[in-house]
Design a protein around this nucleic acid. Structure first.
Lengths: 116, 116
DNA sequence: TGATTATATTACCATATAGTAATTAAATAG
DNA sequence: CTATTTAATTACTATATGGTAATATAATCA
């Protein structure tokens, strides 16, 4: 384990990291990733499962693909997508955990305020 | 044949998670968080350290505050900010790890293409 | 061949937001 | 009190982007 030091981050690195977060900052894209959840699915299946429009889902899938978060495979008329970077699960889990803790804190505050 | 049942995430939950990612999707906010890195700093110190304008840093700090990622403390003319949610470190580390892996893969591909 | 189906793409609009300059607010000093 | 300092806020512009409707592309089928 290396000692932790204030490491210098270049503007370019900051842009890359920010872009990754930006890709994950749209509810519909999160919904797609959550629906995909390790299983391969066609665009049509994703359209039905998410309730989005075909054009919209296709656009979001391309953004996810460009970001390297999903991979795709063509078979006949269908294109099948699957999650290609397990990072997205780690990220969402970390966020959910943090949001959960915050909720508990808020509930506690309300309880304390109302006197239980 | 029914697919496995993905756990249901409400639209509201997706919005919350997406908002968290959106807050982290700006290079300047990442720079602020990276500069803060566990140490408390005043707005002026952050302005100097990041090279941003006072208005811009102040605006970003407020966004980070509203998102619960930093806390603040007033003392005289100064306002001191510090990171209040360690989650941001976990998230950035996960992203950096993923980006690093992707870079290695790309370098490998280039090596293979050029014949080592 | 033409028709059908699945997906991608284009053009457009509406909204959100980052950055800035100027101003305000608030605490402190003289 | 007035002046100074630090930070927040306001008003504004420019840009980016999500959603949609329409169209294009491409594979399959009759």
């Amino acid at each position: 384990m290396k000692k932790k030091q204030p490491q210098q981050l270049t503007e370019e690195a900051l842009e890359l990291i920010a872009t990754t977060f930006r890709v994950l900052s749209e509810p519909m894209r999160l919904k797609i990733l959550h629906t995909l959840d390790k299983d391969e699915m066609s665009v049509g299946e994703l359209v039905e499962a998410t309730g989005g429009s075909q054009a919209n889902i296709s656009k979001h899938l391309n953004i996810l693909f460009e970001a390297g978060m999903v991979s795709r495979r063509k078979e006949g008329l269908n294109t099948f997508y699957r999650i290609s970077d397990e990072m997205v699960f780690d990220l969402c889990e970390a966020v959910c955990s943090s949001l959960g803790k915050r909720l508990i804190t808020q509930q506690q505050a309300i309880k304390n305020f109302t006197g239980r």
